[in-house]
Design a protein around this nucleic acid. Structure first.
Lengths: 152, 152
DNA sequence: CATAAATAGTTTAAATATGAAATATCTAAC
DNA sequence: GTTAGATATTTCATATTTAAACTATTTATG
């Protein structure tokens, strides 16, 4: 993406980094997504299943915060998961505004079936980088991500 | 995202890297997107403007390949940009299947007005990393991105 | 207690996004 | 030169996403 020296060295450095970040993220997501779709799930749907499988029941708000999407979006994703009987909503008795979402038995089974294979695929895709490089990348991305979070 | 040692060290390393990649990319995009939206453009719309501004007229197919989206999607984005008179389609005379897209004068002006500020903002957001760290990150992301491209 | 403000979710409209089918055009093979 | 296949774009149906408006509930304040 030719932006060489048009906006100053610092801006060019940042812009090329940014382009590579988006590309790597998009391409990675596309590849793992194809795998997930073969199980009849979309990526966001799988994201919710994974979250509930690892962390247990969560509220709509929690899910949105973790996935970095709005509540309206979570509502739609859950509607579609509920149609497939993979999750269920439960109104909280302490605070009746709150809804807790949890996996059904079918959801639990689906999660366990898919996730192991998914983890393998992610590992394989990442394996173009050595373990040390993956650690370096994680560290840099973590630093970037944390700093950006404060600016939201 | 607690996945410690549940699926083997390699998978965990890759999974945490993957999560950080998506988060950094999403958060970065959200922040620059807010800036762009203040000019009445969406991110994809600005992406097209930027591409045409830097590279000159492109075909629909070129745009889709560079943005990593399907042709159908490009059609819609261009429709919306055309409504605002920011771009125009021109049927190629050599190959009448092909459409070349170019900025209008208004589009050129909009691009120039927004992009300088955008580049500054990207540089500022990236500045939480030193220049050396940004270079390191670019290098690692490039390696990852290139390797993944082949697997599509 | 009554009302105002805050919070949790849902709904709605508009912009993306995909994949598949349809249209128009070009290229190749006979 | 005609037909078959390939290519470029659009159209369509469906899904995701956002922001903003709305509903229901809880908390705070007087």
């Amino acid at each position: 993406m030719r932006t060489t020296e048009q906006y100053g060295r610092k801006a060019d450095l940042a812009l090329t980094m940014w382009v590579k970040l988006v590309r790597a993220s998009t391409t990675f997501g596309r590849l793992t997504g194809k795998d997930i779709e073969q199980h009849g799930l979309t990526q966001p749907q799988f994201g919710v299943l994974e979250m509930l499988g690892h962390l247990g029941p969560l509220t709509i708000g929690d899910i949105g915060k973790r996935m970095l999407v709005t509540g309206g979006c979570v509502t739609v994703i859950l509607d579609n998961l509920e149609k497939e009987s993979l999750v269920e909503r439960m109104r909280s008795s302490e605070d009746r505004r709150v809804i807790k979402v949890q996996l059904t038995d079918k959801g639990e089974l689906t999660f366990k079936t898919i996730f192991g294979k998914h983890a393998q695929m992610v590992a394989e895709l990442a394996s173009v980088l050595s373990e040390e490089e993956q650690l370096q990348l994680s560290t840099l991305l973590r630093k970037l991500g944390l700093a950006l979070k404060d600016k939201q």
